[in-house]
Design a protein around this nucleic acid. Sequence first.
DNA 1: GGAAATCAAGAGCAGTGCTCTCGTAAGTGT
DNA 2: ACACTTACGAGAGCACTGCTCTTGATTTCC
Lengths: 229, 229
Amino acid sequence: MSSIAQGARARARNEITAAIKEEARRQLAAQGAARLSLRAVARELGMVSSALYRYFPSRDDLLTALIVDAYNSLGEAAEAAADASADAEPLVRWTAVCEAVRRWALAHPHEYALIYGSPVPGYEAPETTIPAAARVGKTLIGVVRAAHRGPGLALLNLPGELRPEAERMAADFAPDLPPETVAALVAAWAQLYGLVGFELFGQFHRVVEDREAFFRHAVTRLAQGVGLH
Amino acid sequence: MSSIAQGARARARNEITAAIKEEARRQLAAQGAARLSLRAVARELGMVSSALYRYFPSRDDLLTALIVDAYNSLGEAAEAAADASADAEPLVRWTAVCEAVRRWALAHPHEYALIYGSPVPGYEAPETTIPAAARVGKTLIGVVRAAHRGPGLALLNLPGELRPEAERMAADFAPDLPPETVAALVAAWAQLYGLVGFELFGQFHRVVEDREAFFRHAVTRLAQGVGLH
DNA sequence: GGAAATCAAGAGCAGTGCTCTCGTAAGTGT
DNA sequence: ACACTTACGAGAGCACTGCTCTTGATTTCC
């Protein structure tokens, strides 16, 4: 198994699973997660709804699969932006990654809402989503790390009460970077999400008009807060 | 009408409307907006589901009413924090307001998700929600304004491409403040939302441990970005 | 007091996620 | 090649949802 030559049955299963996800993603993009209907997906694929449960044991499992895909798609967009600007200055790369995130969000609003929207009930992020979710963060770390290796990173200071926390985060995610930088990076990451979310979810309606320019400026200041220049 | 002495019918209508909202809010807080059911609300109130439509023409209208209430509740919390610290330094007041927002969000996660979550389908924010939604922003403006009247506000600089946008925002929301400050304030507001949202929606899981300290620090830097000190 | 508006209740429609059963087809071991 | 096990699609059905329409009673207003 796991070879190219798999049985006809396994091959069909993979194809059908992919077709289900594809149609589900279409409905998600068109109408949002709330209106995603298993029965409608099955109907569109010409199968009966109960047959779909052979491939996804529940609606939530389908949504989880879509979440992982969305995380990966967003992560790819961020990584592509970082790679494409690999030779540029750190600050340019930073804004390139941030703008890639924003563009992806504007192009896939329902997917963005699905992953960064409101999964409040306690917590429920299945294990499988975690590595995919970390890709954007890892990309930002990579940009900062490149700056750190060059001369492009300023030192920050940190209140004493936050030092242990910062050292723990640094040890977990980027032992080669100064703890102050890692702490600032995590905050900047959350704030990037705030900027994108506010625009996407309509909070900038009748407040910010030139959102592109506004975003670029805000994101530049974010980078400065991390020490890039 | 609109006097204290209203007919028994109007009085009953107000009471029932309030009871519906109360029960709906209970279900919202307990299980989230997705699981809020008109029929369950009616059932709990001992009435038949169709009767409920005399008070709210649709589920969305009920949710809209809850959204307005949530905005007002959050706005009140922010204003209370600003008032309680009216004599303190601007930076202290700023963090007090931000921490009040965070506390409210942690105490009312489903309500917070309802108002700042994902209303993506195009846009649909009904007129009535706008003034309520603006209260937190107005509170932050008030804190900065007080600092501006005193000696507590540093001047910022702004790239030229953003100047017209900043001047427009200032003219709309705070003509007495420098446009640079208003632009920075809007960005800080969105970033505050990002910090709260990331914590609330579980993105800090296994990333940030001492969230209280982390938040306080991030919010202090936010204030510095607006020019408070 | 009578006309008009308001209301609760019930039945009903179309849709949902999900479960269970049943006959059939595909893969597996001997 | 035969029997056995597993995977699968189809259908019926359950409990639930938002919402509409009709019916009969109650309240309000002229």
